[in-house]
C-alpha cells in the first residue's frame, strides 16, 4: 500500500522533526560562531520555556481533537493574581511566594475547568468556548488591574526564573506529562477519546470527564507559565501572554501532533518548541530582522504540517 512511496519521504515523515532540528543546529552553528555556546543555548531555553510549558498542556487538548485559545489570557490572569498575592505583606517571603504561585496556577486551572464545562455541558465547540474565555479572561485581568502593571515585588520572587530553575521546571513538566499520558488510565483515555470519541464512549470511557480534566490541565500549565513569567519580569503584567496560544499551537503542530486528535507525543511538542526557539534565536544572531523571522517560522509550520500529512496517509 505505502511501499511505493519513496523511502526518503517516509523517513523524513517519521523523524522529520528531529532531523529538522539537527539541520537547524548544524546550519546555525556554521553560520554564527556564538550560536552553539552553552551561554546562548541556555538563552534559547530561557526564551522558550514558557511557551514550551503552555504547549505541554496544549498537547493534552490537541490529542483530544480540541483546541485551547484561552491559554494566553490565562497566563496573564495567573501572573497578575500571583503578583497581587506576593505583593501583600504577610508571613515570610517563601510563604508569600508559595501562596502567590499556588493562587496563580489555581486561577488559571479554574479558567480551564470552565472551558471544559462549557465544552461538555453546553456542548460548544472547543474553538468557540476557549475563544470566549480568551477575551473574557483578558477583559477581567485588564479590568481588575486597571491595565496597570503590578510591580514593586520583593527581590526573592525573581529567583524563580533565574539560572537553571525554569529549565528544570520545564523538564519536570514534560516528564510528568509523559508519565500521565503514557502510564496512567487517564492518559490512555485521552488518546482513545481523541482517536474516536464515539468508540471511546462505547468502551465505557466517560468522555466528558476526560475533557474536563484536559482543559483544566491546559489551564493549570498556562498558569504555571504565567507565574514563572511574572517572576521573570518581577511584576504582574496584564498584557502578558498575548498570542502565546498561537505559539503553543505552532509548537504542538510542528511537533507532529494531529489537530484531528489521537496522534502526537509530548516529546514531539518539546522538539517542536525547540525548533521554533532555535530558529528565532539563530535568525536573530544572523541579524535577520523581526518581520522576516515571522515569515520563516510560518513557512516551517507549513512544512511540518505537510510532513504530518504524509505520515497520516501512510497510516491509513
Amino acid at each position: 500500500m505505502n511501499a511505493r512511496r519513496p523511502n526518503v519521504l517516509r523517513i523524513l515523515a517519521r523523524y522529520g522533526i528531529v532531523v529538522a532540528l539537527l539541520i537547524e543546529l548544524i546550519v546555525f552553528s556554521w553560520a554564527s560562531e556564538p550560536f552553539l555556546t552553552l551561554e546562548n543555548q541556555a538563552n534559547v531555553m530561557r526564551q522558550i520555556f514558557e511557551i514550551a510549558i503552555i504547549a505541554a498542556g496544549m498537547t493534552f487538548v490537541i490529542l483530544t481533537a480540541g483546541i485551547d485559545l484561552s491559554v494566553g489570557s490565562l497566563v496573564a490572569a495567573a501572573g497578575v493574581s500571583c503578583a497581587a498575592v506576593v505583593a501583600i505583606d504577610f508571613g515570610t517571603l517563601p510563604l508569600r511566594i508559595a501562596a502567590g504561585c499556588m493562587t496563580g496556577v489555581a486561577v488559571a486551572a479554574a479558567g480551564g475547568l470552565v472551558n471544559g464545562l462549557v465544552i461538555t455541558v453546553m456542548r460548544l465547540p472547543p474553538f468557540v468556548a476557549t475563544l470566549a474565555m480568551m477575551t473574557i479572561a483578558r477583559g477581567v485581568v485588564l479590568h481588575a488591574t486597571e491595565s496597570r502593571t503590578i510591580s514593586g515585588l520583593p527581590e526573592g520572587f525573581a529567583a524563580l526564573s533565574e539560572g537553571a530553575t525554569p529549565i528544570a521546571i520545564m523538564l519536570v513538566v514534560f516528564i510528568g506529562s509523559w508519565l500521565v499520558l503514557m502510564r496512567t488510565v487517564f492518559g490512555r483515555h485521552v488518546y482513545a477519546v481523541g482517536g474516536n470519541a464515539e468508540a471511546a464512549r462505547l468502551c465505557g470511557i466517560r468522555v466528558s470527564r476526560v475533557l474536563l480534566k484536559v482543559y483544566a490541565i491546559s489551564g493549570a500549565l498556562a498558569g504555571l507559565a504565567g507565574v514563572l513569567g511574572a517572576a521573570r519580569l518581577n511584576s504582574g503584567y496584564p498584557r502578558a501572554g498575548e498570542l502565546a496560544e498561537l505559539d503553543a499551537i505552532a509548537a504542538v503542530v510542528v511537533g507532529g501532533a494531529s489537530l484531528a486528535g489521537g496522534r502526537g507525543s509530548i516529546w514531539g511538542t518539546l522538539v517542536g518548541a525547540l525548533v521554533i526557539g532555535e530558529l528565532n534565536n539563530g535568525l536573530s544572531l544572523l541579524h535577520v530582522e523581526h518581520f522576516s523571522k515571522k515569515i520563516v517560522v510560518g513557512v516551517v509550520l507549513v512544512l511540518a504540517a505537510f510532513l504530518d500529512r504524509f505520515r497520516a496517509e501512510g497510516k491509513s
Partner: peptide
C-alpha cells in the same frame, strides 16, 4: 470501523482499554 476500533492504538491497547483500572499499581499502569 466507525465506533468500534480505536484505529490509532495497538491491538493490546484496544483490548485493554475498557479495563485499564485493573492494571493500576500506585496510580500508574
Amino acid at each position: 470501523k466507525g465506533r468500534g476500533i480505536l484505529e490509532f492504538l495497538s491491538v493490546a491497547e484496544n483490548i485493554t482499554i475498557s479495563n485499564l483500572p485493573a492494571y493500576r499499581l500506585f496510580g500508574l499502569l
